[in-house]
Write a protein that binds this DNA or RNA. Structure first.
Length: 272
DNA sequence: TTGCAGGGGTCAA
DNA sequence: TTGACCCCTGCA
């Protein structure tokens, strides 16, 4: 599958902190797994190649997952409000916000709290190996993210053995609530952003940051501006404000999530 | 080798 | 508003 597309650089999209299951290969391509499918994505100039994906797979899943139909040049123009944003947008010019699975995002971002990206990836990978389904791609084995029933059936001890520490009971309770239907993607999708936040925050172990990441990266609530240490730093340094989330959402409105990703990626990885 | 600080937070007091 | 929390990594 070969696409003509602007504003999509695999490195920017898969390394900007929104996802934990895409790995860079020696040739610069990325292999990842979503929707029980493994694919390899590479790019040059205005062309993106997806290996391991049929036309049907693309239309049914990857088009939406990769946010192919969104006009990012319009978004960039809208959030380019000052010199800082201009630099951040140039630095992460190929970022796209993925539409990830709700349950996977929920558990992954619960795991992410007070943890580094390599550690998060390692824990998520161990969880998938423990409870996911094996898929072979290019001679190697990959594992799907387990569904809520599988995770809910694990014991707290099994989860702790993955290295998630005090987050084990958070993961277990969240999985149980999704498995028994007391919270669902469908329910949250129907709610406006404020109501969806209120509902998701009722989950034990889900605070402001995790909540906003889940809603932004799996349900497309783009008016959220998840605020972590990096965003707080950049908002304080460049925008002279201490209330990062509030200021970001006021400034960027319906495009807050995109602005947040450009700023996060720039502040964390631009060491110039 | 050992010790310690800190990492994409959240809960409870 | 503050301390505790689980585990791992990097660095004296």
């Amino acid at each position: 599958m070969i696409l003509k597309i602007k504003d999509f650089v695999p490195e920017h999209t898969f390394e900007c902190g929104q996802c934990f299951r895409w790995e860079r290969e020696p040739d610069g391509s990325y292999i990842g797994i979503a929707n029980s499918q493994v694919v390899r994505i590479s790019s040059n100039a205005d062309t993106v190649t997806i290996d391991g994906c049929t036309d049907t797979d693309f239309e049914l899943f990857w088009r939406k997952y990769l946010d192919i139909d969104r006009d990012y040049s319009h978004i960039k123009a809208s959030v380019n409000v000052n010199e800082t944003m201009n630099k951040a947008i140039k630095f992460g010019s190929g970022i796209r916000i993925l539409r990830q699975d709700f349950f996977e995002a929920l558990i992954s971002f619960i795991i992410s709290q007070r943890s580094s990206i390599p550690k998060i990836k390692s824990c998520v990978d161990k969880l998938c190996r423990l409870a996911g389904e094996q898929i072979c791609f290019d001679g190697k084995n990959y594992y799907t993210f387990p569904d809520a029933y599988k995770v809910a059936a694990l014991s707290e001890e099994e989860l702790r053995a993955l290295g998630v520490g005090y987050r084990a009971p958070y993961i277990l309770k969240a999985a149980q609530e999704v498995a028994n239907g007391s919270i669902s993607k469908e329910e949250l999708e129907k709610l406006d952003t404020a109501s969806a936040r209120e509902r998701l925050l009722r989950l034990y172990g889900v605070g402001d940051k995790v909540c906003d990441c889940v809603l932004l990266f799996s349900l497309g609530k783009y008016d959220l501006f998840p605020s972590d240490v990096w965003i707080k730093r950049v908002m304080e340094e460049e925008f002279k404000t201490k209330s990062a989330k509030h200021s970001g959402e006021n400034l960027f409105g319906t495009y807050s999530g995109f602005a947040q990703q450009y700023l996060f990626y720039w502040r964390k990885y631009n060491n110039a």
